[in-house]
Amino acid sequence: MKKILSTGYLVLLLVMLYAPIVIIAIFSFTESRVLGNWTGFSTELYTSLFSGGVNNSLIDAIKNTFIIAFVAASVSTLLGTVAAIGINDLRYRKRRVVNFVNNIPILNPDIITGISLFLLFISLGITQGYTTVILAHITFCTPYVVLSVLPRLTQMNPNIYEAALDLGATPMQAIRRVILPEIRPGMISGFILAFTLSIDDFAVTIFTNGTNGLETLSTYIYADARKGGLTPELRALSTIILVVVLVLLIVVNLRARRQAKQAEQAASFNGKTIG
């Protein structure tokens, strides 16, 4: 009884969370311009999304979103990884200060990050556009990369690096051959996190995209919604994004599970040979 109740509660919450999304997904299969009006089954929105039936500005917004996310996530991963290697070697006060500043963009509300960067670009007299949006995205993505790489480094046995040096490796070689393989999973999850944060961002982008009409998906949707209605094709696009994310998460999860199992097997195997 208790079990049924608790399961029922979780299901109820999930239904609440998914209801709006399910509605979007269902209504992506009908042509009606207004969400909530069912005018018969059709895949028209999907074909129109891919055959250029939508206006160019939406296509541009999608392109911009992905270009910005890719560049920002790549730079963040590079910058954040290099920084994490350095931070791991810092001591006491300095390390605390760097960690504190690193946490600021995470704790700051997006709107503050956006406005503060807006004021920075205004003060420096930089015209806002692609570059400023990418710089802004790097600013709020890199801390997450640092946070996903740093634990890998602290968990690592520091003697391995020293051993590599003793065995004649240059510091560069030691980092490439010893540290890098250890932190690669952290870099990958940092990159994925940065990428999704960048795609999803709205508040920071809207303050840094300038007045030259640079739109990402978020700002496009915002402008669209304020005009009084969502471009119907966006329902199809959202459904596609959801499915892609769902598949991606399942794959990542299955991989993690398989790796955990392998590690378990390896551990028990080692235990046998030693014991």
Binding site: L79, G80, V82, A83, I85, G86, I87, N88, D89, L90, V98, V101, N102, I104, P105, I112, T113, I115, S116, L117, L119, L120, S123, L135, A136, I138, T139, T142, V146, T170, P171, M172, I175
Partner: peptide, 26 residues
């Protein structure tokens, strides 16, 4: 360059410009 702690320098400079300075500007 070989001292690993120096590797945090680019990010420290970056944060000074894009995290600390904007807040000071506010």
């Amino acid at each position: 360059f070989n001292r690993r702690r120096s590797w945090s320098l680019p990010y420290v400079i970056f944060m000074a410009i894009f995290v600390v300075m904007p807040l000071v500007l506010i």
